[in-house]
């Protein structure tokens, strides 16, 4: 069970107080109508599942009710940092993740969506973190 430092409460608390909310830094496109169906599908449904550094969003559900981000190693489960919503991580494997992502782009059989996002879709979807 994780021991999580809430950047708002500034204390280590038990995992039971938190809800995991999936990958962090998934910004909603500013202009959804300008997205193709495929880009919108990528924003809605496709997430990274890296072996190693992962930025993920958590909620201090039965504490301060604040959303915040965690940089976590998905192999060792080590939490490398927690930071407030709107801040950027200081520990990252962004370039690594991007390389892996580009390499893994492939058309899904018979579908209209891709497995993993293209760089172009990434650029339009990720945008600047609010």
């Amino acid at each position: 069970m994780f021991h999580i430092y809430c950047p708002y409460c500034e204390e280590l608390r038990e995992e039971e107080e938190f809800h995991p909310k999936g990958e962090a830094h998934i910004a909603r496109p500013e202009e959804p109508e300008a997205c193709s169906d495929e880009e919108w599908g990528d924003y809605l449904f496709f997430r990274d599942n890296p072996r190693g550094i992962h930025h993920e969003m958590w909620l201090h559900a039965v504490g301060c009710r604040k959303f915040f981000n965690i940089t976590r190693n998905t192999v060792s489960y080590e939490i490398l940092e927690t930071y407030k919503m709107g801040e950027q991580p200081t520990v990252g494997a962004e370039h690594l993740a991007r390389e892996e992502k580009t390499a893994s782009v492939q058309a899904a059989e018979g579908g209209q969506q891709t497995v993993g996002a293209s760089d172009a879709a990434l650029a339009s979807v990720k945008g600047a973190q609010a």
Binding site: M57, F67, M85
Partner: peptide, 13 residues
């Protein structure tokens, strides 16, 4: 309630 907070805190602060 969590849904409202999510949108407020992460998209429209």
């Amino acid at each position: 309630l969590e849904w409202l907070e999510l949108w407020h805190q992460t998209e429209w602060p």
